[in-house]
Design a protein around this nucleic acid. Structure first.
Length: 876
RNA sequence: GCCGGUGUGGCGAAACUGGUAGACGCACGGGACUCAAAAUCCCGCGGCCGCGAGGUCGUGUCAGUUCGAGUCUGACCACCGGCACCA
């Protein structure tokens, strides 16, 4: 064999990959055609934002999708795996500012580069269906559907809060606000209320929540996150009537409405708190400059929920009062920064004894604490200080006038009905989910099809004037939306009265684009309709693959949008994605130095020497100067941390198959994946081993078919392993989607094959069968090398058109089994018994084992537990 | 802060239904081949005790359930993802 190996052809990934790819392209292998007679499989990976080059997250995402698609194809399904581009968005505008190129040109360049990269990775994509969301042929349907929803009242206009940079006079995205300041100007960011369009996703809240139960093929964690996001809660809306003083200030009679899930604690309310944007706060601020200043300050804060929730609790009394709806006590109204205008009524009743936030707030400002719930478990008897989580438990009402001694449910019911009688409250369901604000004050997006006329107001663009085409030659400069300076875009005639009018310059959230792109792939060539009957054949998406970071927003919006289209009669579908796989992030080491100015400078892992000596002492130095660098742990590959790995370099050096194999082998798909250059080498080494094994085998001629009856013990046992591996790999790829364990099993098999005898024709027949099955099993994962090796093994056809093999059941039968013997739960021996052995025989054999006897000897056997085919536990 | 996840050798991980902890790979150590190196092939590789047979401890921490717990329950700690204008 060593003589032969010198003459074997070398594995040259570039040549092998180019050959396979041109075969696929010459034969249109990936073209998907509708065929009602065949079972379809729509395999979709989340389309990329064309940021410039592929990153490892893309490689991982699309390899997972490709493995599933190719495996399904081999199982005889009619597979559609399309690709498109999520082409609108902020990075194009940032690149435009940095380089002075128009976002359109930048985006299109990126797309053509990244398309070549995807092709070089050998993904089985049907490119005939490709589109980008920045093409008018696509986004016109965003506009069309927007107008349909406007008619139906599912789109409406109201004000929304945005980050405002006072120097640049522009709206900032959350990521453009750094420590409360504009990223370019450094000016303190303000909150500003501006008119925006909203989609009424809350109208579907119940359905979106209930349908989660039916998504049995979605990861549990995604369903839980979505359910919490929708956040249905049953509670009571309570009206606190204005005190005479408040009536005077407001100039009218009225009530302060709050929503609470804890109506049982109503008698413990000692004050009310409203958000800074609440009308009562505005009224009070008119005559109170100090309060006005405080409200102003609150409005300057971040609009992000995380910031609001972690900010120190602050507040100020308004001097206005309301009356307790049951006790008629006078309660003061406070403005508090922990009350969100966007949830419920923008006001809460504060029960310091039984709510942690209210408790903290009342301690700080010396407000009354009134305990009205008695602990069922006896965890506490009063709630004065300090806070314990048990204070918020549901207990028994006490100190609550006529409502004492009731359990949670009864208390809520009794108090709600008392309130209802007085006309001061009723049971209500509240969702945490808010309507979806889709207006963006940005250039690179779908224009909102509205015309503003001085006489007629906001007028929808008539259908025959769609699409409203976005001019593609603008170069944003950071000071507001460049569309506002484009007279040719702005000026138009009012569709109603014909007077000169102005076009809306806001564009749509890019989540609109990604909320229905999967419905467009089946019919991307249709210029007359948004979707057509081909959607019925391909949808739902059978397997959707994408990052866990999309678990809530993108997936929820897509589920909403699909239902909206269903209700417009456009599709006959509730849920767009039958099965979901959320892949983990790709991580790499982080290294940095702190400059004298306190700024962090990040170094790429390849620029750093990171070593640990035998005593565990870690030395990290920069290769360039030998001076120390700080290790920053491990984190998501990103530009900002300078720890990304360019897939292109890897594909150019070791090949696409190595890149694919490494990402599939190193971690299970749902977990995060740590980059390792040594691991990549290992993947490449494995491919070389397979290459060599196949060539070495055929170098001495092809073997005949296996004759199972003629095999000796060793041949049988090897063949059993081959078919066991096939069974495991089929299950791992097809059901469990644990590609890492599938690959590990094939590696084990190859190790066994390399040790196998190859002297007799029977030996060689078993090996030939094993190599053929190995190449078939690996072909979805490393398709290029398998394409070649299949031919080398003597098959004239292409492996992509082969059928997925089935294990031979007769090969799986074993004559003996090894049983583990434990004494008191500790392994003390192993015995080999016939597969057909009875429980009594297994038990006898176990007790007869020498080492087992040592531990049993002289003690009483109390119990013997026999787990058939696995182990025996002797309890003494 | 809230919601979700993760935690196992020097490292990435495996153990799928409560039943042999560490498969497979990486790194490392030893050997073969070589003038030498690389590549390749073979062997070893959780800690401690023991010449060995074997023993003993060990799955983030602390408790619990069980004949038996990485797996189930409760409390806690650390890290990661999302939090509505990044996509």
């Amino acid at each position: 064999m060593s003589d032969l190996s010198h003459s074997l052809p070398e594995y040259n990934p570039q040549a092998v990959e180019a050959e396979a790819q041109s075969w696929w392209s010459d034969h249109d292998s990936f073209l998907a055609r509708e065929d009602a007679t065949r079972e379809k499989f729509y395999c979709l990976s989340m389309f990329p934002y064309p940021s410039g080059r592929l990153h490892m997250g893309h490689v991982r995402n699309y390899t997972i999708g490709d493995v599933i698609a190719r495996h399904q194809r081999m199982q005889g399904r009619n597979v559609l795996q399309p690709m498109g581009w999520d082409a609108f968005g902020l990075p194009a505008e940032n690149a435009a500012m940095a380089r002075g190129v128009a976002p359109a040109a930048w985006t299109l360049d990126n797309i053509s580069y990244m398309r070549r990269q995807l092709q070089a990775l050998g993904f089985a994509i049907d490119w005939s269906r490709e589109f980008a969301t920045c093409q008018p042929e696509y986004y016109r349907w965003n506009q069309w559907l927007f107008l349909r929803l406007l008619e139906k009242g599912l789109v409406y206009q109201t004000t929304g809060t945005v980050n405002w940079d006072p120097l640049d006079q522009t709206v900032l995205a959350n990521e453009q606000v750094i420590d409360g300041r504009g990223w370019r100007t450094g000016a303190m960011v303000e909150k500003r209320e501006i008119p925006m369009y909203y989609m009424r996703i809350t109208a579907y809240a119940d359905e979106l929540l209930d349908a989660l139960d039916g998504l049995s093929e979605w990861p549990e964690r995604v369903r839980v996150m979505q359910a919490n996001w929708i956040g249905r809660s049953e509670g009571v809306e309570i009206a606190f009537p204005f005190d005479p003083l408040t009536r005077e200030a407001v100039g009218a009679d009225g009530v302060l409405r709050v929503f609470t899930t804890r109506a049982d604690t109503l008698l413990g309310a000692t004050y009310c708190a409203v958000a800074a944007e609440h009308p009562l706060a505005t009224v009070a601020a008119r005559t109170n400059p100090e309060l006005a200043a405080f409200i102003d300050e609150c409005k300057r804060g971040s609009v992000m929920e995380a910031d609001v929730a972690t900010a120190e609790k602050r507040g100020m009394a308004t001097g206005l009062f309301v009356r307790h709806p049951l006790s008629d006590a006078r309660l003061e109204v406070w403005v508090a920064n922990y009350v969100l205008m966007g949830y419920g009524e923008g006001a809460v009743m504060a029960v310091p004894a039984h709510d942690e936030r209210d408790f903290e707030f009342s301690l700080k400002y010396g407000l009354a604490i009134r305990c009205v719930i008695r602990s069922k478990s006896g965890a506490y008897t009063d709630t004065t200080a300090p806070w314990q989580p048990s204070y918020a438990e549901r207990g028994i009402t006490t100190n609550s006038e006529g409502f004492d001694g009731l359990e949670f449910q009864q208390a809520v019911a009794a108090i709600a009905s008392a309130l209802e009688k007085k006309g001061l409250g009723q049971k209500r369901i509240q969702f945490r989910l808010r309507d979806w604000g889709i207006s963006r004050q940005r250039y690179w997006g779908t224009p909102i099809p509205i015309i503003h006329c001085e006489t007629c107001g906001a007028v929808p663009v008539p259908e025959d004037q769609l699409p409203v085409v976005l001019p593609e030659d603008c170069v944003p400069d950071g000071s507001g939306n460049p569309l506002r300076k484009r007279q040719d875009f702005l000026n138009c005639a009012c569709p109603k009265c014909g007077k000169p009018s102005r076009r809306e310059t806001d564009t749509m959230d890019t989540f609109v684009d990604s909320s229905w792109y999967f419905l467009r792939f089946p019919c991307a060539d249709n210029q007359r309709a948004m979707v057509d009957e081909r959607v019925k054949y391909w949808l739902p998406v059978d397997q959707y693959v994408g990052g866990i970071e999309h678990a809530i927003l993108h997936l929820l919006y897509s589920r909403f949008w699909t239902r909206v289209m269903r209700d417009l009669g456009l599709v006959a579908l509730d849920e767009p994605f039958a099965k979901l796989l959320t892949q983990g992030m790709v991580l790499n080491g982080i290294y940095f130095r702190k400059t004298e100015a306190g700024r962090l400078v990040y170094y790429h892992p390849t620029e750093v020497d990171d070593q640990e000596d035998s005593s565990g002492h870690r030395t990290v130095v920069l290769l360039a100067d030998g001076q120390p660098v700080e290790p920053g742990g491990i984190g998501t590959m990103s530009k900002s941390k300078n720890n990304g790995v360019d897939p292109q370099t890897l594909v150019d050096s070791l090949g696409a198959d190595t890149a694919r194999l490494f990402t599939m082998f190193t971690a299970p798909p749902e977990q995060s994946l740590e980059w390792s250059d040594e691991g990549v080498q290992g993947a490449s080494r494995f491919l070389k081993r397979i290459w060599k094994a196949v060539h070495a085998h055929v170098a001495s001629g092809f073997a005949g078919p296996v004759a199972p009856g003629a095999l000796n013990h060793f041949q049988k046992s090897l063949r059993r392993q081959v078919h066991q591996t096939l069974a495991k790999v089929s299950d791992d790829i097809g059901r469990r989607r644990t590609f890492n364990t599938a690959i590990a099993a094939v590696m084990e098999l190859l190790n066994a094959l390399n040790r196998a005898e190859t002297s007799t024709p029977e030996d060689r027949a078993v090996v030939q069968e094993a190599l053929e099955l190995t190449v078939l099993m690996l072909s979805p994962i490393v398709p290029h090398i398998c394409h070649r090796l299949w031919n080398v093994l003597g098959h004239p056809g292409a492996i992509i058109d082969e059928t997925w093999p089935l294990p031979d059941p007769s090969a799986l039968v074993a004559e003996t089994r090894e049983i583990v013997v434990q004494v008191n739960g500790k392994v003390r021996g192993r015995v080999s018994v016939a597969s057909t052995a009875t429980e009594a025989e297994v038990r006898t054999a176990a007790l007869a084992d020498g080492n087992v006897q040592r531990f049993v000897d002289g003690r009483t056997v109390r119990n013997v537990i026999v787990v058939p085919g696995r182990l025996v536990n002797v309890v003494v």
